[in-house]
């Protein structure tokens, strides 16, 4: 798993490549919690290159979004595709979050 972050205006874009699984989820969690601790209110998770996510990954996302919500912040998604998209549909996460085709579309909306 590789994580790349990019800040623009008051949002941070977090792009994850590879797999979020039992081994890599802690690094993903740290990446999100570091941003939230630093005061970031809007996070765009770009999953266009994410190949795999499990329930631990979804738990990290839910925990982060609960924290952001308490701070009147928001977490949205860009580029969900393939089996990862199916995991989001089955878990009902699709109806919890705004979904955008691309980072650019997410930025425009925010």
């Amino acid at each position: 798993m590789e994580i790349a972050t990019r800040k623009k205006d008051n949002a941070v874009m977090v792009s994850v490549t590879g797999r979020i699984d039992m081994v890599t989820a802690p690094a993903f969690e740290k990446s999100l919690s570091d941003e939230i601790s630093a005061g970031v209110k809007r996070i765009i998770l770009n999953f266009s290159a994410l190949e795999y996510i499990n329930s631990i990954g979804l738990r990290v996302i839910l925990t982060a979004s609960k924290k952001l919500k308490e701070q009147q912040g928001e977490l949205v998604f860009a580029g969900l595709q393939g089996p990862v998209n199916e995991v989001f549909k089955i878990s009902g996460f699709h109806s919890l979050y705004k979904m955008f085709e691309s980072e650019e579309a997410a930025l425009q909306e925010m």
């Binding site: 499990n54 329930s55 631990i56 979804l58 738990r59 839910l62 925990t63 979004s65 609960k66 919500k69 995991v87 089955i90 878990s91 009902g92 109806s95 919890l96």
Partner: peptide, 17 residues
Amino acid sequence: VTAGIAERPIGGLGIYF
């Protein structure tokens, strides 16, 4: 799986998957 962010318990999806 229809609960909102605030109401959702952390965890519980693994067995469902």
